[in-house]
Nucleic acid binder design. Structure first.
Lengths: 212, 212
DNA sequence: ACATTATTTTTTGTATACAAATATTAGTTG
DNA sequence: CAACTAATATTTGTATACAAAAAATAATGT
């Protein structure tokens, strides 16, 4: 799909809406409606839907029709499990690589996080939170792994939760845990880093389950 | 994409060809050619290509055109790294679950493998090998994880190698290691299982690199 | 013969058209 | 009124058409 094709335009547009929950799970996507809304022909919309299906953000019904995939409680559990698997795995790779720059980057993100929480920008803090975890994945330099993570809906799910919760206390914990993780990575203390990450994710899941 | 739509037919057809290396990496896919070959209109072909792009089996060039993604040595390394991450992670989950039936299934696959090697069906043995690893992933009951594995090209890569190599010695080692892994799982011996799996994958990588 | 322009052919991106499948509404009857 | 049926409107799946872009080929001049 050429970057500047109409199909690509539709693709990014719809994708954004799904990933930011402006399109709820289960919502039906009608081709003609989107075609009109974005002033393109239906085939461009169709192509975009197909691509989204490939990324499994969307699915086609038995009797036709395109629907936004929705998240059940089961999905939450699965995503949580997958997330731990991927992030712990990535962390292990980071310990092998010893990338100095990465540690600096992570520390900067932690600072941004603290700043924004202090100033009351909770949305921004949430973004920094997501960025922190994505940075860990990026640190592996494994493009496939990074892709999998980004396409796994984990970041999106993360954002969605952040938007709902927004309690001061959680943010303080998050900040502490992120920093502890970076310290452990810097010190080469695998046990500490591992335990911190697992605990951090566990706490996140608990908070998440309260909001389902 | 409805299961019985023409676009789906094209999708599965092209996908199969890519995954079985009948379409080499870098090959250009011309819409009209496939449309004619499969006796459908170009838009069906187009939709199929879009979906394949979503699964990143295919990519679109800057100036248009659809190309089969190809594997570089870098890709091999990445896939190997990803594979260890996913399979070790899955194995860890299996130790938490203690699924009796799974152990039985794995043992049966091991038996099939032995049988086929003995009878000289090396292609079949390779399939059993792939199945063994897929079964491990399936044992996690995490559909997202299973999907990621299956869409990661790992099984395909596995098959491709198997087709090339086909040495008796490798098969013997594989058999031994698979069985050792199952034993360790049955006995609840995590250390042993972990080491066996990592060693097994390492050996696989070494063999693979000789053929690049 | 070689490089540079024209010219033609392919190939793609997009729109439109239309029939078949689905869903919706209106109408009818018990 | 409720339940069924008929009529209507939507929506999808597919094919065809066509212009713009790219590639391939031929033609030209040096």
């Amino acid at each position: 799909m050429k970057e500047d094709s109409l199909a690509h335009k539709v693709y990014t547009e719809v994708r954004k809406k799904i990933l930011s929950s402006q399109l709820a799970g289960g919502a039906r996507l009608v081709e003609s409606a989107w075609a009109e809304k974005l002033a393109v022909s239906r085939v461009a919309v169709r192509e975009a839907f197909m691509r989204l299906a490939g990324e499994s953000l969307v699915e086609f019904g038995e009797k036709g029709g395109c629907f936004v995939k929705d998240m059940t409680a089961e999905d939450v559990k699965e995503i949580r499990e997958l997330r731990e698997l991927l992030e712990v795995g990535a962390l292990k790779l980071l310990f092998k690589k010893k990338n100095k720059q990465l540690v600096k980057d992570l520390e900067l993100i932690c600072d941004d996080f603290t700043d924004m929480v202090n100033k009351g920008y909770y949305g921004g803090a949430c973004e920094a939170d997501v960025k922190f975890h994505e940075k860990i994945m990026e640190g592996t330099d494994n493009s496939r792994l990074i892709n999998i993570y980004k396409n796994s809906n984990i970041p999106l799910f993360h954002m969605k939760l952040g938007a709902i919760m927004g309690q001061m206390e959680d943010y303080k914990d998050t900040d502490t845990e992120h920093r502890a993780l970076v310290e452990a990575l810097k010190a080469g203390n695998w046990e500490k880093a591992y335990n911190t990450l697992v605990h951090h994710l566990d706490r996140g899941e608990q908070a998440a389950l309260e909001w389902m």
